[in-house]
């Protein structure tokens, strides 16, 4: 995906990205000309008041949504204008997602949940199984592989979700309020898992949160207001 001319670009490279919903009077500019670079191995927390566009930014970076205007180079390749199906392929091969509500499939074991993205990658059964177990081991849940989400605590469910995001071996993991449903103790556990993944595996993480304490686990904090980036600073606790 890279060549000599584009290698110097960061992994994620946004220029003048806008996302506009509705038309005319009802027009909402969720993102209003954002410029943002994220390097490989970074851990970025996006914060901001509700309606500031942080979730939209996350969706655009995660290729769940396409920007209305602007340039988005992922790994040096322009992806802003890609079709729905090509964006799906991009997500399948390069991106992993962790959501606030865990979003695991009910009545499906942790192992199967983690295997899910690998099925779409076309991996064979045995290979898939091994990769899923490995991903569960990374979040310390390999002993829970055959439990349904309903048999797991919230923190464990979120760790399964992280394992699912990791299983496909993505370049970036996008986490949308990953601790939003958890108490402080469990939230810290989850953040530690994410920080370890970033530090030991060099995994690039982009996270949206509204809790300052959780944002401190990241290396870099982006503060958004009204669809624009207002501040972009290293966090105090950055290692």
């Amino acid at each position: 995906m890279t060549d000599a001319a584009t290698r110097r670009l960061p992994l994620i490279h946004l220029r003048g990205i806008s996302r506009v919903y509705g038309h005319g009077e009802a027009e909402v500019r969720a993102l209003d000309g954002i410029d943002l670079d994220i390097d490989e191995g970074d851990f970025v927390a996006i914060m901001g008041p509700s309606g500031s566009g942080k979730s939209t930014a996350m969706n655009v970076i995660g290729c769940l949504d396409a920007p209305t205007a602007g340039q988005y180079r992922f790994n040096g390749v322009e992806v802003a204008g890609l079709s729905r199906d090509l964006r799906a392929l991009l997500r399948r091969h390069y991106l992993g997602f962790v959501f606030q509500g865990y979003n695991l499939l009910a009545r499906t074991t942790a192992l199967h949940n983690v295997e899910l993205p690998l099925i779409y990658k076309g991996m064979g059964r045995a290979e898939r199984h091994a990769a899923a177990i490995e991903a569960l081991a990374k979040v310390g849940l390999e002993h829970r592989a055959h439990h349904d989400p309903s048999e797991l605590s919230g923190g464990q469910q979120q760790r399964v979700a992280i394992a699912r995001a990791l299983a496909g071996n993505p370049q970036v993991v996008l986490a949308d309020e990953p601790t939003g449903n958890l108490d402080t103790k469990l939230s810290r556990e989850i953040m530690e898992v994410l920080r370890d993944l970033n530090e030991t595996d060099g995994l690039t993480i982009v996270m949206v949160t509204h809790e300052a304490e959780m944002a401190r686990y990241a290396r870099r904090l982006i503060w958004m207001v009204d669809g624009r980036i207002e501040r972009d600073t290293p966090t105090e606790e950055a290692a």
Binding site: G62, L64, R84, D85, A88, L89, R91, R92, H93, L95, G96, F97, F99, N103, L104, L105, L116, P117, Y120, K121, R164, G168
Partner: peptide, 13 residues
């Protein structure tokens, strides 16, 4: 939601 998850992790239409 299941459909949403599948689409998010890379299922094509």
């Amino acid at each position: 939601r299941e459909i949403g998850i599948r689409l998010a992790i890379g299922a094509q239409a």
